[in-house]
C-alpha cells in the first residue's frame, strides 16, 4: 500500500540515506536525496555521477546508502544505469527476478548539464525505464566552485570571478529542463526542496510512469553560494517565489506549472543573501541586476504561455 504523503507517515519509513555522510553542514543535496528515496514505495537501485553527493556518501569503505548503489565515472551515470536496467529486464525475462524495481540516477549539475549530457541524452533516447535526478547547485562545488553551464548569470565563481573587467559569469544558465523536455520523454519536472510535497509527488508520479524520466532539483550550497549554513530551505523557497526557479512539469508534452506564487517577489530578494551575487549590488552593476530580472521575467512569461497552450516547453 502506498504511504500517505504526510510528514508524519513518511517519518515512519526507513531512511535509505543514513547519517554519517560527509556532505557539508547545511547542504541541500542530502535533503533532496532523502525526500526522493522516501517518495518511493518500490525497491530502488541508484547510480551516481561523480560529484559532491558521490564522494561524500561513499568515502572509502563507508557508504551512507541502504540501497544498491553504483558509481562509475563523471560522465556516465545515465549510461551505467541504462546497463543495470537492461540487465534487470533480461533477468526478469529469464524468470530469475520477480521484484518490481525502479532505477534512479543522481548527478550534480556538472555531471548532468556538462560532462554527462551525452550519456543522459542517449539513455533518454533509448527509452530506458529510469528516473534521472539532477541536483543543481549551480557550479562544480566539489572541486572548488568552478563555473558550470548551470551557473546563473552574474554569479561569482573561481573560474569567472567578479573583478573590474568581468562581473561574474557573463552568460545566462543553460535551461536543461527544457532540453530534456525537448527529448519528448514521458515526464520532465523541476522541483525544489523547500516545497517538499510538490517534490515528493513529482518523484512518485515519475516512478509510476514507464520509460525515461528527468527531474531537475535546485540544491542550495552555502559554500558556493556564499550564504549562511542555515538558509538552504529559505533560499530555495525564495528561488521559487521570485520565479527564478519555477516549479513545473511536462507530462507527455503538456506543460503544467505546479506552483504559482501569489505575489512574484523581486529577484533581488533571492540574490541579496548570497555572496556570489554581492558585486551585482554595486552601483556600476545596476544594469546587470536589471538584465537578470528581465531574463527571469521573460522565462517565466514563456513558461506560463507554454502551460496555457499545453505544448512542450521545448517547442517555443
Amino acid at each position: 500500500m502506498a504511504t500517505p504523503l504526510t510528514l508524519k507517515e513518511l517519518s515512519k519509513k526507513d531512511l535509505l540515506l543514513t547519517s554519517g555522510h560527509r556532505m557539508c553542514a547545511g547542504c541541500g543535496a542530502p535533503i533532496i536525496v532523502k525526500m526522493v528515496l522516501l517518495a518511493s514505495d518500490y525497491p530502488l537501485v541508484a547510480a551516481n555521477a561523480t560529484g559532491c553527493l558521490e564522494v561524500s556518501t561513499c568515502i572509502s569503505d563507508y557508504t551512507a546508502w541502504k540501497i544498491p548503489w553504483i558509481h562509475n565515472a563523471f560522465e556516465n551515470a545515465a549510461a551505467t544505469l541504462s546497463g543495470v536496467e537492461t540487465m534487470y529486464r533480461s533477468l526478469k525475462k529469464q524468470g530469475k527476478i520477480d521484484k518490481d524495481i525502479k532505477f534512479i540516477a543522481f548527478g550534480g549539475d556538472g555531471g548532468t548539464y556538462d560532462i554527462g549530457l551525452q550519456s543522459l541524452s542517449g539513455a533518454m533516447e533509448r527509452g530506458h525505464d529510469m528516473l534521472y535526478i539532477c541536483y543543481d547547485n549551480g557550479a562544480y562545488m566539489n572541486t572548488g566552485i568552478q563555473r558550470s553551464s548551470a551557473t546563473p548569470y552574474g554569479a561569482d565563481t573561481t573560474t569567472c570571478p567578479a573583478g573590474s573587467v568581468i562581473h561574474g559569469k557573463p552568460q545566462p544558465r543553460k535551461n536543461l529542463t527544457k532540453i530534456m523536455a525537448a527529448h519528448d520523454i514521458p515526464y520532465t519536472a523541476q522541483a525544489s526542496p523547500s516545497h517538499w510535497l510538490d517534490l515528493v509527488k513529482k518523484v512518485k508520479k515519475a516512478l509510476d510512469i514507464k520509460g525515461p524520466k528527468f527531474m531537475n532539483i535546485l540544491s542550495p550550497c552555502n559554500r558556493g553560494w556564499r550564504s549562511k549554513t542555515n538558509d538552504a530551505i529559505q533560499l530555495s523557497r525564495l528561488a521559487v517565489e521570485t520565479c527564478c526557479w519555477p516549479l513545473y512539469e511536462v507530462e507527455n508534452g503538456v506543460t503544467k506549472v505546479t506552483f504559482k506564487p501569489k505575489e512574484k517577489k523581486p529577484l533581488v530578494e533571492f540574490l541579496k543573501p548570497q555572496g556570489r551575487f554581492k558585486h551585482l549590488f554595486a552601483p556600476e552593476n545596476e544594469n546587470m541586476l536589471k538584465n537578470f530580472q528581465e531574463m527571469v521575467d521573460k522565462e517565466w512569461a514563456s513558461l506560463l504561455k507554454s502551460a496555457e497552450g499545453g505544448r512542450a516547453s521545448g517547442t517555443e
Binding site: L7, A25, G28, A29, P30, P193, W196, I233
Partner: peptide, 8 residues
C-alpha cells in the same frame, strides 16, 4: 525532520 540534511 524533513529538512535536516543529516538525518539527525
Amino acid at each position: 525532520w524533513a529538512y535536516c540534511p543529516d538525518m539527525a
